[in-house]
Design a protein around this nucleic acid. Sequence first.
DNA 1: TCGTATCATGAAAGCGCTTTCATGCCAAGC
DNA 2: GCTTGGCATGAAAGCGCTTTCATGATACGA
Lengths: 334, 334
Amino acid sequence: MTDRPTTLADLARVCGVSSATASRAINGKPGVRPEVRERVRRVAESIGFVPNRSAQHLASGRSSLIGVVFPSDGLRSDPYAAAMIDAIGRAAAKAGFGTLLHLEAGAPPEQVFAMLQRSGSDGLIVSALAASAMWISELAAAGVPVVYVGRPSPDVDLPFVTAESFSASIRATEHLFEQGCRTVACLTGPLDRPDARDRYDGFVEAHRLAGLPIDDSLVVVGDFTAAAGVAAVEELLRLGVDGVVAANDLMARGVVSGLVQRGVAVPGEIAVVGYDGTVGAEFPPVLTTVRQPFDAIGERAVAMLIAILDGEAPGSEVLAAELVVGDTSVRARR
Amino acid sequence: MTDRPTTLADLARVCGVSSATASRAINGKPGVRPEVRERVRRVAESIGFVPNRSAQHLASGRSSLIGVVFPSDGLRSDPYAAAMIDAIGRAAAKAGFGTLLHLEAGAPPEQVFAMLQRSGSDGLIVSALAASAMWISELAAAGVPVVYVGRPSPDVDLPFVTAESFSASIRATEHLFEQGCRTVACLTGPLDRPDARDRYDGFVEAHRLAGLPIDDSLVVVGDFTAAAGVAAVEELLRLGVDGVVAANDLMARGVVSGLVQRGVAVPGEIAVVGYDGTVGAEFPPVLTTVRQPFDAIGERAVAMLIAILDGEAPGSEVLAAELVVGDTSVRARR
DNA sequence: TCGTATCATGAAAGCGCTTTCATGCCAAGC
DNA sequence: GCTTGGCATGAAAGCGCTTTCATGATACGA
């Protein structure tokens, strides 16, 4: 990378050992006397030896690179994606892996396929939001280790890590009931998206548990954008709801803003709960929201990918998400 | 990457040519008969040949990887960072480069240094927000191509691409004047940050141009978070301002929310302008903001990095930013 | 007609590292 | 005292590609 890189051979020469020994010493492989190892390491440090990743990759077959696949629009417009990528990046770094960012910017799928193939990463962490589902499966079938973050569609048979949306959504809905809400709407995403589906199912289940009837007209479908939240306001008012469970913070924020604009008191007249626990929830009125355990998800995903690399076959993991009560749901007892 | 990768040698064998010729054919190098090139390419396609990046890197010294350095907190909490990374990622992909994400997660600087060194990228695109300034300079001095996005501190002598904050800030301030504001505050970031400084300077310059006195107490220093915006509200009210120019959308949003919470009309009593043009500006009340040309910045940064790789010494570039008028500044004529 | 410049092609030398495999050394066991 | 096993070490063979360099073929001009 720099102009005159020090190589393993240099290091070995300076230490008066063979490059094989130097390699073993650096990498903590057995078969080196402790004092030799120590010396090699010290010299490496002092002459600024940095192993060449590509050479390592070529020789060992391991690139120590993890590919991260997200929809491009997601990164730019959805704080969830940003938080998730950040978490994965940190976790990967901690595990000694570099992070190769693959943004699906509407490129033709075959190009994406080729891109991912030649990226040279050891494996892929793919967002359930990513569009290239079938290509991912094909890659996985071709032997590329893949782990999903978020809940992928059920026909994808690959390990994933996700937060427990179903019960979190139950909890969120119950929370509104506890606040005295009687007519709660569900502002969800496209129901063919498993995460949206889970949250919707939780909403329904909460009603069942509470013995409340559920009216299908109370389900409003959005597209996870703030604009969708704003757009839903009219419908929500028409429905006469006193509570809204949104499928993400962006839509929740849109709803709150739209309501406030119209002079509707939040949470006084209508209480709102979001989902994700991103930065977008954190300014006033602070959203009540379900906080995803981003760091934990990132860490588990990386760990699972490494497990696959090591020949194991880890199962999917579902992590608990936590309801964080903010300003938009707690109303004076009515 | 997959289990039994096809190599250049395979391809060459199938085509009945040497691997040298195959390589030349694939890479569009001269010295191959058109029909041979065509055949090699067709066969490559059909047998699914994908060149091994690491091998290419090792042999040619070019990794086709760009390292992108951002503060980790930035990605998670600042839509600006997400948008910028997205733009860079797209631009890099378009130019045939992969994107290696380096998040400064508070790791000790030497580790960052080593990390960047051994990442094996051809060069670095560094956010002006990144903390590792001196390490970056050291890397650059060691021969690593570096381009900054955003305005780096003046003592960093490396090429950068940024949006023109100074005149954009003038424009934003003038806009408030045009809306009838008489007492405009500047909610800025730490003034040792060049981008904050630029925006502050523009604020001052706008006053000079308008022949208005500028009161230092009208400058409120925040830290680019929504919380800072909220926290500034009290001060702003005390100052009796009727307009606020914030240094980013997050703070502007915080201010607006804080004001609305207190029942202050926006823009009726106090008009607010943000900066960045991120997704956080786009829900009601839609922020009037200065939109950064993210994609253009990303593209120029990548182009400049490639220029450096090609031995050129590109100069810094300053791109125009555009004021986008939303709901938070346009008031009925008073 | 022959010499020479031109060009497509292949052989082979690495790029910097990991990893057998063989070697030489020593301590333990007979 | 001599064999055997274990262990630290080095030599060397690649990993898959790019890139001189040499070669043979072709076409050109004289």
